[in-house]
Design a protein around this nucleic acid. Structure first.
Length: 814
DNA sequence: GTTTAGGGTTGG
């Protein structure tokens, strides 16, 4: 079936379904969206870039990730999704950013797994491309022309006849629309109103649960206890043969909806057991978060009343003091004898014997106590046998016993896990499988997942899209970043402050996540390895000269350097042209003199072009120039797509010193890393290379391409403390501008400058200093003296300005 | 047309 979503809620003259949602059913159908208007032609995701005209084009693919609906300033919304297109071994994935009512509609009506077609989009640089390794560009959908067509897989069976299903059965033979009229809704019984011997539907907040465990019968069993606004708590037992049919409960406070459970008496109280036609859906219990149903069921009823029921239960539970506290702990907080739940990533595992498996996990924080070391022969370890000394310090060895061993067999290194009711045990322990000559050391803390299911003991894999995993990944990613070992981030900032121009606009900062803010003093107390949401003002920032916040960064050796200024580059060019040593042109080159458009030549300027490219008529693709000034090289970019300045060295053609750009493309300049490049000029178009750009040229010349990055230091303050934080990893997201654009383009630079001034108006201006909602991640790094120091970075936060000036989409003028 | 379990920690 298809929907038409549009930010202006356009109906295009087709029947409307009576679902009370701002979504319009066009026609029934399965497979690829076939109701897409015929004037739209499809463009493969892999071909998307900013120089392709995307008017009347569609991008089609499957929604493999759907992010939360995030409120922004000015009462709007933003939602991010990832769409994947698979065809003939080519797989392309691209980030899709939806705004406004389109984001709301998408959030409500589109599920992960749906096939969508998007049109009316604009193409932008993806600020997360370095991190998510997805497409270098993204699709931006907002405004009246943007729309999304949705198609959903045909469910294997017709839905329950009484259900007002979001997903209706599609008939391949017919495109007739089945209208839904006056469908009876599900009735939900309050828990205190349950009567024995009835089959009911209920909603509740989970106050206790066990992950499914194997019974002596044919099924797995989930045990849980739920409560609701009637203040009654009721025990439930769910029997299902398949694990995927069991409730997906991640933590206490989750919301659960049970359909077709029967009531029965046991021990003088009423309880619930699943019965025929049973189905279950769960939701995160966090107030303000997106209402995303968790189910493996393809077809399930979900409408706007479900959304509000979940919200009501969340709000009610948030005000209940009797709700059990969460046993979740970071490793850094764990004390001897604690029982606790742990969210972590599995790094390696080893089967010790039939009753015990070792899981090596981390959560990015460091336990305050010395941890048990388990020496396991490398040949029984699945995953890396060892890690860097720095990382090993964060790894917890967890011994999993008895009934839980079976579940660990399906785990793979890299999985995100939640372990329930772990025990931290101090002192000497007999570890099974270890020779008695190697007893666990005294006073070392060991972690055990004991046998049995008491207190919900167990473990489960958490899906990557869950918010807890997303948060954990941000912490872990930071640790993995080698750049954080780079002392650059710790260098003293030598910039002298200078007064900037008056602030033009008062901006606001919007966190792409809605949490209760913490105070800076709490953040400081918490130490490294955490994610914090704060409400702060920006007291000052460094550097104050904007061009200095752009750096060149090598992802291979993690070195960072300033972008060379114009004078330095000019000098390198004039040095290279001062010694006109003759040079044998390479055998593949045609050589001659350049005509510089416009204006006369100031001196001899020799040029080299590829014979092959010239023979193919591609005369403007690539030019090598020798003896030119910087200015002349820049002029040549108007006539040639790739301009490579070269010089003669030992009779051979070579590049200028790598402090200079090795390539000019339009306004963009590309630099190579001095440490990691091994320059040999070869034909970049060999081996069937069709495209000539900075990547293919760098590869052919043995150059390690450097990236433009932003790096700033902010001093944040609130009523309790002040804190120095870096803006680095998520800086492009923060500014909504890529560093590469800012490097090539004055307009982008001034945009960033205005944004910084809007959140930190100069002292002498009348502008008020806005309060900013920011997400901070804390991590530990070693300083030059071997001391661990806690650092902070702004993550996952973006400027959402109310100023029209800043809000206008940015289009590079070329 | 319904067996299984029916929360509650000491254990390597």
């Amino acid at each position: 079936m298809g929907y038409y979503l549009s930010s202006s809620h356009l109906l295009i003259g087709l029947p409307q379904i009576s679902i009370n949602m701002p979504v319009h059913l066009l026609s029934d159908g399965a497979g690829p969206p076939r109701q897409v208007p015929s004037h739209l032609s499809r463009i493969p995701i892999t071909l998307i870039n900013t120089s392709v005209d995307c008017t009347d084009r569609t991008v089609q693919g499957r929604v493999v990730h759907k992010g939360p609906l995030v409120p922004t300033a000015a009462d709007s919304f933003i939602l991010k999704a990832v769409v994947t297109e698979e065809s003939e071994q080519i797989v392309g994935s691209i980030n899709v950013i939806l705004q406004g009512t389109l984001a709301q509609d998408f959030s409500q009506s589109v599920h992960q797994g749906d096939v969508v077609a998007a049109s009316g989009f604009t193409v932008g640089k993806s600020p997360t491309r370095l991190r998510d390794k997805l497409h270098p560009f993204n699709l931006q959908l907002s405004g009246d022309h943007a729309c999304v067509f949705v198609s959903r897989e045909v469910p294997p069976h017709p839905p329950h006849p009484r259900s007002l299903a979001v997903v209706r059965r599609a008939s391949a033979a017919s495109t007739e629309v089945s209208r839904v009229t006056k469908v009876p809704k599900y009735m939900y019984v309050r828990l205190k109103d349950l009567k024995p011997g009835t089959v009911v539907n209920v909603y509740g907040v989970v106050v206790f649960f066990k992950q499914p465990f194997r019974t002596r019968g044919t099924d797995f069993c989930s045990s849980l206890k739920i409560t609701d606004q009637s203040n009654q708590s009721v025990f439930c037992t769910i029997f299902c043969e398949k694990l995927e049919d069991h409730p997906k409960i991640f933590q206490i406070g989750d919301i659960i909806r049970l359909h077709r459970v029967k009531t029965q008496f046991f021990n003088d109280s009423i309880m619930l057991v699943n019965t025929f036609g049973f189905s279950v859906v769960t939701f995160d219990g966090g107030e303000g978060g997106p209402v995303e149903p968790r189910t493996s069921c393809q077809k399930f009823h979900f409408d706007e009343t479900d959304g509000s029921t979940v919200e009501e239960l969340r709000a009610w539970a948030a005000g209940q003091v009797k709700m059990p506290p969460s046993p979740l702990m970071r490793l850094s907080a764990v004390q001897p004898t604690n029982y606790f739940d742990l969210t972590c990533q599995l790094l390696a595992k080893a089967s010790i014997d039939s009753t015990c498996t070792l899981l090596r996990v981390w959560d990015g924080s460091r336990c305050a106590h010395t941890l048990l070391k388990v020496n396991i022969s490398p040949d029984i370890i699945e995953g890396p046998p060892s890690f860097s000394a720095r990382k090993e310090e964060l790894i917890a060895n967890i011994l999993v016993y008895d009934n839980h061993v079976e579940f660990t067999r399906q785990l793979k290194p890299g999985d995100f896990l939640r372990l329930y009711n772990l025990r931290a045990i101090p002192g000497s322990q007999k570890v099974p499988g270890l020779p008695s000559s190697q007893p666990a050391e005294l006073h070392h803390l060991s972690f055990h997942l004991h046998g049995g299911t008491a207190y919900g003991r167990g473990l489960r894999i958490l899906p990557e899209n869950s918010s807890d995993v997303q948060e954990l990944k941000r912490v872990l990613d930071l640790f993995e970043d080698d750049e954080l070992n780079n002392s650059y981030l710790m260098d003293t900032w030598s910039t002298t402050p200078e007064s900037s121009a008056g602030a033009e606009a008062a901006g606001g900062l919007e966190l792409l996540d809605d949490r209760h803010p913490e105070q800076l003093s709490e953040v400081r107390r918490a130490g490294p390895g955490g994610v914090h949401h704060v409400r702060v003002q920006l007291r000052s920032y460094e550097p104050q000269k904007l061009h200095q916040l752009l750096k060149l960064y090598c992802s291979k050796c993690s070195s960072m350097q300033d972008v060379p200024d114009e004078e330095l580059v000019e000098n390198l060019f004039s040095q290279a042209s001062r010694s006109p040593v003759p040079c044998d042109p390479p055998p593949w080159a045609l050589s001659g003199m350049a005509r510089l458009p416009p204006g006369p030549l100031k001196r001899t300027l020799s040029i080299h072009m590829s014979k092959q490219l010239v023979s193919e008529g591609k005369t403007t693709q690539l030019i090598f120039i020798m003896g030119s000034s910087l200015e002349e090289a820049i002029q040549l970019t108007s006539g040639y797509q790739n301009v490579v300045p070269v010089m003669s060295s030992g009779g051979h053609m070579t590049l200028l010193d790598l402090s200079a750009p090795f390539l000019f493309r339009g306004r963009k300049r590309f630099y190579g890393c001095r440490n990691c490049s091994d320059v040999v000029i070869k034909e970049p178009w060999g081996n069937g290379v069709e495209l000539i750009n900075e990547k293919t040229i760098a590869e052919a010349f043995g150059i390690q391409l450097m990236q433009f990055v932003f790096l700033m230091k902010f001093k944040l303050q609130d009523a309790t403390d002040s804190l120095d934080v870096f803006l680095f990893r998520d800086a492009e997201l923060f500014f909504g501008v890529t560093a590469e654009d800012a490097a090539a383009n004055q307009e982008a630079q001034s945009r960033v400058c205005r944004m910084v001034e809007s959140i930190c108006p100069p002292e002498d201006s009348t502008g008020e200093r806005p309060w900013l909602h920011l997400c901070l991640v804390s991590y530990s790094r070693e300083d030059d003296f071997g001391q661990n120091q806690t650092c902070y970075q702004i993550c996952h936060s973006a400027i959402a300005s109310s100023s029209p000036d800043l809000q206008a989409p940015f289009h590079p003028p070329f």
